[in-house]
């Protein structure tokens, strides 16, 4: 089965690998995301942003719970900052969402900013498309803790 079909059928392994390839800017990822494009555009995309410690992850966790009560499938993209010194990152948003880890209809993916300045990662737009193609009803994008102007999320989210 080819990658497009697998992702549209909701294959998490395949989807998370494609998101990784998109983050790493692998050349093979571009044609793959292009093939997925016809299957995108049906999800409702919610952006969660706020200053550090405001409760973004906790709110995301609560929202996942509410959507699951209504039997909606959920995708979450949680962005955390990359260290400008080492290039590494600690992605810890999932700690607040542990109770959904085993729910197969909830796909949570952490992304590091990797130097992007708008509170998101460059791969966020593509990663949203991958989750749309998987058929997620709702996609929640959680930004890094923002300061005065990291508002790139407004270009991606419906609400």
């Amino acid at each position: 089965m080819d990658i497009t079909k697998k992702i549209c059928a909701g294959d998490v392994r395949c989807a998370s690998r494609l998101i990784r390839d998109l983050e790493d800017k692998k050349p093979q990822a571009r044609p793959r995301i292009k093939k997925l494009f016809p299957y995108t555009g049906k999800s409702f995309i919610i952006g969660i942003t706020g200053s550090p410690g405001a409760g973004k992850s906790t709110l995301t966790n609560a929202l996942i719970g509410e959507f699951r009560k209504h039997r909606k499938t959920v995708g979450v993209l949680a962005v955390d900052p990359t260290s400008p010194f080492s290039g590494g990152a600690i992605l810890g948003d999932r700690v607040r969402m542990l109770r959904h880890a085993e729910d197969e209809d909830v796909f949570i993916r952490s992304l590091a900013t990797r130097g992007a300045l708008g509170g998101l990662s460059q791969a966020v737009g593509d990663a949203i498309h991958v989750m749309e193609a998987m058929g997620k009803d709702v996609i929640i994008v959680e930004t890094v803790g923002i300061g005065q102007q990291e508002l790139d999320i407004m270009h991606h989210a419906h609400n």
Partner: peptide, 13 residues
């Protein structure tokens, strides 16, 4: 320590 070594770490607690 992994972050400082340049790896991306998913810390799950």
């Amino acid at each position: 320590c992994f972050r400082d070594a340049g790896f991306e770490v998913i810390y799950t607690g």
